[in-house]
């Protein structure tokens, strides 16, 4: 597939995530939109990894098995960090709900009291 299509798909997913962060007030939905943006970047990294593999094959070099491994391991580590981030973030949201009985981010605009 042309790499441009993957770039446009990832950009569209990322922009939908940005729109969600800008237009919603529910903290959990904002958090889910951040996950959407992370996944758009992951898709782009995997597509570029396969692009470099195709490139090295087209250059006539013997296709070694390590071409493009780095990008896919980056995606793996992004998933690891995202999982850790979600646990802490959801703990913070649950604590916020216990304190102010709402998940509306507008109640937190002063960060005191």
């Amino acid at each position: 597939m042309p790499i441009n299509l993957y770039i446009f798909l990832a950009l569209a997913l990322f922009s939908i995530g940005v729109i969600g962060v800008l237009t919603r007030r529910n903290a959990i939905i904002i958090f889910m939109c951040i996950e959407l943006m992370l996944n758009a970047v992951n898709l782009l990294l995997v597509a570029f990894s396969k692009m470099h593999l195709a490139d090295s094959m087209a250059a006539g070099a013997a296709p070694t098995l390590t071409n493009g491994v780095d990008a896919q391991l980056f995606v793996f580590f992004i998933m690891v960090v995202a999982a850790a981030e979600v646990t802490v973030g959801l703990a913070i949201i649950v604590m916020m709900y216990r304190n102010i009985h709402s998940v509306d981010v507008n109640f937190l605009n002063r960060l005191k009291n």
Partner: peptide
């Protein structure tokens, strides 16, 4: 560098 992503192989 290249305009195609390798699909289905590699």
């Amino acid at each position: 560098k290249s305009t195609m992503a390798l699909v289905g192989s590699g």
